[in-house]
Amino acid sequence: MGKQGGDSSSLINEQGIRADGRRIDELRPIKIEVGILKNADGSAFIQFGKNKIMAAVYGPKEVHPKHSALPDRSVLRCRYHMSPFSTEERKNPAPSRREIEISKVTREALEPSLMLEDYPRTAIDVFVEVLQSDGGSRCAGISAASVALADAGINMRDLVSACAAGKVAGQVVLDVDDTEDKEGQADLPIAIMSTSNQVTLLQLDGQLNEEEFNKALSWALSGCKKVYELQREALIGRYFGKNEKVLEVEQ
């Protein structure tokens, strides 16, 4: 928060290269692993730049407390949580208001993709644990959670893929990292269901005019599609032979 000011001149050089060496329309390196936790019904690990995030799914399972069960569908519950050591300064492990909000938008981003009506009177728990954060952790967490849900065999219409675009040093950029988020002017995290092009998460922090908003939105969508390819390949790798596949983003 507080996106006004900050010396943003060093964030993009004259050649259009960003502080970490990326072009303005380039994603950070992404690696997705599926089925990394033994106990969970489904799990995934995503490295998205310096983000290291684990997602685990338990369920469909019995609902506790019982009265929160729904007669016609499953209850999806999400918890987004940052480990105390995941940030520069130690983060208090108690859930902050930010984490409660992100838990809510994560649930709402994933829910349209799931066929919850197939599992009445049950609960599906999704845990997203941010082990190291580097900006864009909600997007990476959602992408990992969707893969974990697929790994758990939950009936779904589509994978949910998330990616942010933003504005840094006056330019629209794809995939805002931590420094750019703090010093930049805007951050627009988006999640979509790729095959139907439905937006399931949209947040905006910071100022964009109409033209910039349209551009950032379309860049974020293209970022989501790249994430989708990686999610898909990771799942295929898990279930059709290859244990782990390191995937470089092709641009």
Binding site: E108, L188, T200, L204, N209, F213
Partner: peptide, 8 residues
């Protein structure tokens, strides 16, 4: 006319 915050 800039958009400055949003939430779905």
């Amino acid at each position: 006319g800039n958009l400055c915050a949003g939430q779905k």
